[in-house]
């Protein structure tokens, strides 16, 4: 089996995503859940990087406008930039809500969220 970075990175990023989702599914503490979400988001970002084929290509900053081959695909980089910012935003909002929730109820445990139920 060929263990180059190119083949390992997708598997590694997928592992991070699923590990994060596993954390979201099983953890009870809200802070830990947000940490897990961040892990999953990092995995997604790595997945986008792994698509660019960066092992063979150069950084897409052109020295000469006429030579445009041999560089990596810039679009996934642009998408990651967006998804990083959105991930940060989600984490910040989630933590703020958690802070306020903790202040009101004194708990961080999701299983104790019983204010709303059938």
């Amino acid at each position: 089996m060929n263990l180059s970075l190119e083949t390992v990175l997708p598997a590694f990023s997928l592992m991070l995503i699923l590990l994060g989702l596993w954390g979201v599914a099983t953890r009870k503490n809200l802070i830990k859940i947000f940490i897990s979400l961040s892990i999953a988001e990092t995995g997604v970002n790595l997945l986008y990087i792994s698509m660019t084929g960066f092992v063979h290509g150069k950084v897409p900053i052109l020295a000469d406008p006429t030579v445009t081959s041999g560089y990596v695909d810039p679009l996934p980089h642009a998408m990651i930039l967006t998804s990083i910012v959105i991930g940060t935003a989600v984490t910040a909002l989630g933590l703020a809500l958690t802070a306020r929730y903790h202040e009101r109820t004194g708990t961080l445990n999701v299983t104790k969220m019983k204010e709303l139920k059938n």
Binding site: P60, I61, L62, P65, T68, P74, H77
Partner: peptide, 17 residues
């Protein structure tokens, strides 16, 4: 990436995108 230098004038293609 191919169109970036002529259309946007930016050497950094990621920035152009």
């Amino acid at each position: 990436l191919v169109q970036a230098p002529a259309q946007s004038g930016a050497p950094n293609a990621v920035t152009a995108v």
